[in-house]
Amino acid sequence: MDNVKNFLSDLIGQNEVVLKYSGHYSEEIFKDIMYKVENIGSISNTAKRKIFFISVELLQNVHHHSLKDKFIDLPENYFHFAITKNNGKFFKICAGNFVNRKKYNTLVSKIEQLNLLNYDELRKLYKTVLNNNEYSDKGGGGLGMIDIKRKSELKLEHQNIFLNNNLYFFNFSVFLENKK
């Protein structure tokens, strides 16, 4: 699993690290990350609010959808999360976790669909899903990725490590312009 362990470093590259974590996911870790996000210095309130929102959605997606098993030498319920500043112009927020093939296909398909929509189309879709009275058994409403794309306004990306026929490590990358 060295490729999974090194994945976050590869994704960060030479960019400035604002925050990073990899290991076991828990409620305490979630709270700790969100506390650190709230206390990121030297950025606009607008950027901080958007980073906070996107981070909450990404981490809660990890909690709801990742495979909780222990894979070889990694802790169980393993995930990674990072916020980087790329060339001072963009923030990149990424979160990765283990998924099975079905979940992988669903995520990739959803990202591809959302990337085709402009801002107005996303807003219309958001309102349609908001008002459809459907909840998942985990309390989700199918709005998370739509609203992440809406807040980011930039293309969503994913990077993956194929481990076997039914196991992937899936990383979701969200970019945000560093507006003043």
């Binding site: 609010r49 929102f53 909450v56 809660q60 909840y135 409403g141 998370g144």
Partner: peptide, 12 residues
């Protein structure tokens, strides 16, 4: 100040 998408439908 913030609400997640899990809260969005509940607020509606």
């Amino acid at each position: 100040e913030y609400f997640n998408t899990s809260s969005s439908k509940c607020i509606l």
